[in-house]
Nucleic acid binder design. Structure first.
Lengths: 361, 361
DNA sequence: ATCTCCTGTGTAATCGATTCCACGAGGAGG
DNA sequence: CCTCCTCGTGGAATCGATTACACAGGAGAT
């Protein structure tokens, strides 16, 4: 493969001049410039990014360590990250942690070895020594979706509290009083936050969240199935299962179907993270939708700001509720179809229409 | 960040010795080795992969240019590719072409500039000059799923003909005679092959495939919707729609639902590519399942063979039919529930049970 | 006409590793 | 005791770019 020396020879100039043309440095004569360009075209020369990176100490590549590529939420996130990065002139190298801290560390280490300019992470755990070390060492870094508390690293994420409150209002309005949640790993922020938001919203309606109604999941489908089976085995099973991510909702659907029960007649189901398939499941699933694409783009902008010496900002975007049929039918107003006395209590929060979308496929 | 020189100084040896220890070259004394190892640990030294790559002319990275990351089939493929690559000591850099040839070229160029050791591609088109040039220039390359004819590049893919024949047998047995297909872009191999396999299987049953029953799609959901609407507007609409990939099937489901029609009562639906969500759609979708994970692994093995000087082999694995409810109910035998006279004609191919799976969720 | 200053260009150092080659010490064989 | 290997080691070249520095030559100022 042709190198810069070949181009220089072909154009009858020095390598310095070739380099200057390539990086359009001002002081090159029009004549030399055109000869170099001609030589580049003739030889089909492409600069060696490896050599360039060694010299300039920048790779123009971003590392993205994602919790689970098979989760459509993260797939969409990855896609938007790549798009924005490309627009800003960066490539993205993806590492899939598969919700495993050891794999996550493997990828972080590999990416660091490859000297990526910055790291975008949605941690699968509470923070390994490696990650803490990298953050402290000053590696440009941004957390997306999940984060590790106590580190001075910008976080780009969605705040689901409002939408979860809307969801609880919706469920309460339908007359449901025994509500259960399948949580993610407590070591992740999204694992614990979603439970807390749910519990707080329930409290506003005077409804408690007993321990038996908090299932332990790991954001994978199989754990959703197991947690749901445990719920169904309870002497008094819940009327609603809220899964903290879409894959666990899938598992819950499996478990419910396996018992021959129907959604929403026998039990209601809702999920965190909205995905295109929820429109087509049987029944369509009510979900809390994150502005996924916007999160990915904001995360990249924050990271690139950090890399290029500007001050990065943390970003929190609101999630919103998308009502479908999996929790029961409701009329246009969304209230009044439940059991007698199921209206919102005095002092209960208003549900801004802007945050709730009724989806009737 | 500490470099090899710092390690050498710390250990009291030369950089050459440090390098030898790191690459476990035989001729290093046990004493020097342990001093170097201690220094490495003390400084937290990690070799700079960029510098190493420049010198050795290998990056131990593979490029994967995928047609569409949002398509769960490709997501799963990407995942298995990364797994196998990691097992063999390689990283994977993914580029998402979004079914756009220009984006595909962008990624191929970027990956080549970064001097990846080899390229795994599922072409979004019939072959751009850039790709042909790269293949001819001797870049280690393997095609996966789709390929470009006329190039001496190994291909790893699934052969869907048997499964499509099984599908047609299933549909014919259910009494369907007007069968339509939503094809992918003719420029892709999977775009044209699947239509041909379908047409050939129909011919075995004496059924034709009129032009009006061949919809033009681009492997994206929206095109599936449009093609389906066109089918439904026909004076004599088809009884079955077979979508050549899962996203177009999703679009078809949308279009059918939008007309207030039901699957399979009003119209039957089948898809190429099986995905986890098809179990939970309304109704569960009958699909041709590819051995996706095995394809990804085989593709990586072929590419690494090529890179490391062994002779790579093309691989073709059989797909199989997974019967669910979207084409109509059928009894255990899968035959005889259709209209009178709907049995398989004499000489029609046998349906090996091993290739057909009945899925009753 | 001489002195500056500016523009365009080339030479060479540099980034952080790998690796060829030379060399000294020490053991084996004669 | 001398020669010849082998083993362990270090010096220096190398990979392909970027860039600091030096410098030649022409324009403009005095």
């Amino acid at each position: 493969m042709a190198g810069i020396k070949d181009v220089a020879a072909e154009a009858g100039v020095s390598v310095a001049t070739v380099s200057r043309v390539l990086n359009d440095h001002p002081s090159v004569s029009p004549d030399a410039r055109s000869r170099v360009l001609a030589a580049v075209a003739a030889l089909g020369y492409r600069p060696n990014a490896v050599a360039r990176s060694l010299r300039t100490d920048q790779t123009r590549a971003l590392g993205l360590v994602i919790s689970d590529v098979l989760n459509p939420y993260f797939t969409e996130l990855a896609r938007s990250v790549e798009e924005e990065a490309r627009a800003l002139g960066y490539s993205v190298v993806i590492g899939n942690a598969d919700e495993r801290p050891d794999l996550q560390d493997h990828h972080v280490r590999t990416l660091l070895d490859r000297r990526i300019d910055g790291l975008l992470v949605s941690p699968a755990d509470g923070g390994s020594p490696l990650m803490l070390e990298a953050a402290r060492a000053g590696t440009p870094m941004v957390f997306v979706d999940r984060w590790i508390p106590g580190l001075d690293v910008p976080v780009v994420r969605a705040d689901g509290r409002g939408a979860v409150r809307d969801l609880v209002a919706h469920l309460h309005g339908l007359g449901h009083r025994r509500l259960a949640i399948i949580a993610g790993p407590a070591a992740t922020t999204t694992g614990s936050e979603r439970v807390e938001a749910f519990r707080a919203a329930l409290a506003e309606y005077g409804v408690g969240l007993p321990d038996a109604y908090v299932g332990q999941g790991d954001f994978q489908a199989e754990s959703g199935r197991r947690a749901t089976e445990r719920f169904l085995d309870l002497p008094e099973p819940p009327e609603v299962v809220f899964a903290a991510d879409n894959l666990m909702a899938l598992g819950a659907l499996d478990a419910i179907r396996a018992r021959g029960m129907r959604v929403p007649e026998d039990i209601a189901l809702a999920a965190f993270d909205d995905i295109p398939w929820f429109v087509h499941t049987d029944p369509p699933v009510t979900a809390v939708a994150q502005p996924t694409g916007e999160l990915g783009r904001a995360a990249v902008r924050a990271l690139v700001d950090r890399i290029e010496g500007r001050t990065p900002r943390s970003v929190t975007l609101p999630a919103r509720l998308v009502v479908r049929r999996s929790c029961g039918e409701s009329d246009e107003g969304g209230e009044g179809t439940g059991r007698p006395g199921a209206g919102a209590p005095a002092g209960a929060p208003e549900t801004p229409a802007s945050r709730v979308q009724r989806s009737t496929p």
